[in-house]
Simulated assay, not measured.
Amino acid sequence: MRLSDYTRLLALAAIWGASFLFMRITVPEFGAINSAFLRVFFGFVGLAVILLALRCPIRFNGKFRACFTLGMINSGVPFVMYCIAAQWLPAGYSAVLNATTPLMGALIGFTFFAEKLTLSKWAAVILGAVGIAIITTFGEAHSMQELVFGGLACLVATSCYAVSGFLTRQWINNQGGLDPKIVAFGSQIGATTLLLPLFIFTSTTDTSIHWAQGEVWASIIALGVICTACAYIVFFRLISDIGPLRSMTVTFLIPPFAILWGYVVLDEAISQGFIFGSLIVAVAVWLIVRPAKQAEEVKALQS
């Protein structure tokens, strides 16, 4: 990987770390479904403005359906899941569970995409499960039920991210490629379309929502424009440059930023169980993403 790749990973981690903070601000006021929809909607609008400003021709080259579907998998469902989790879990907790994306990538790649799992990666999967169990058992939440359901919502989201990473490689990169800005734009069309009916239903039936809240709208716009539109351009470019599994390692860098933003802005606390479980997850993710030995790489290429 080049220095520019590491720089983009770090910047992406800082931005996506802030997204968990923004969700903690918006979800209690606007609700999970509304927050998720507004995020993808402003992501769609932000990408449209970027494409117009750059005078980028919007050509999908026969891949619109792929981009549309990827958006539902990579944005629509995960954003709803994280907004649901934000009702109960502190920002740092969701971010650490988000860091299991490479673990999910290894499992899903092995199960559905003919990816090989070494002994160390199997150990990583087991360690990751132990770490998640500790986090969801000794975490800071109102009840054990909230921890479990919040944790499960995050794991559904990471599974979607893992699947979309491999599908992006199959449907986009292995089929001649596509401008990452166009992939991101098409994906937000898919996510917005998926969530629009749910948004119409919840926004028209829930009369308790107070929409005139400037701070909440600022967080929503930041979620859509910065954490979605700009971030996904970088993310899809990374998948094209360094592959899906390495791109997923950005989730390993997100938790420190999420914990920092949550502590500074919302004064969120963390427990000893959370720290211990997070360290186990960190070791598990490192076992997944560490550089392969040269001999292993040669053997993989020959097989």
Rank of each mutant, 00 (worst) to 15 (best):
A13P: 08
A14E: 10
W16F: 13
F22W: 08
R24A: 02
A32Q: 02
N34Q: 08
F37E: 04
G43Y: 02
L47M: 08
L47C: 01
I50F: 10
C56L: 10
F60T: 03
R65D: 00
F68Y: 09
G71Q: 03
G71H: 02
S75W: 00
G76L: 05
V77C: 03
P78H: 01
I84H: 03
A85W: 07
A86T: 06
L97M: 14
N98R: 07
L103R: 03
G105L: 07
A106T: 12
A106F: 09
F113W: 06
A114V: 02
E115R: 13
T118Y: 09
W122S: 05
G128M: 09
T137A: 14
M144E: 11
Q145E: 14
E146S: 15
G150H: 12
G150F: 09
G151R: 07
A153N: 10
V156Y: 13
R169I: 03
N173V: 11
G177F: 04
I182Q: 06
F185T: 02
S187P: 00
I189K: 01
G190A: 09
A191Y: 05
T192K: 06
L196W: 11
L196T: 11
L198R: 09
I200F: 12
I200R: 09
T205R: 13
T207Q: 15
I209M: 11
W211D: 13
Q213F: 03
W217L: 10
S219Q: 09
I221V: 15
L223H: 09
V225D: 13
C230K: 02
F235S: 09
S240K: 14
S240H: 12
P244T: 04
F252M: 10
I259R: 01
W261P: 01
G262M: 07
Y263T: 11
E268D: 05
F276V: 15
S278V: 06
A282E: 03
A282W: 11
A284H: 05
W286P: 04
L287Q: 12
L287N: 13
A292V: 06
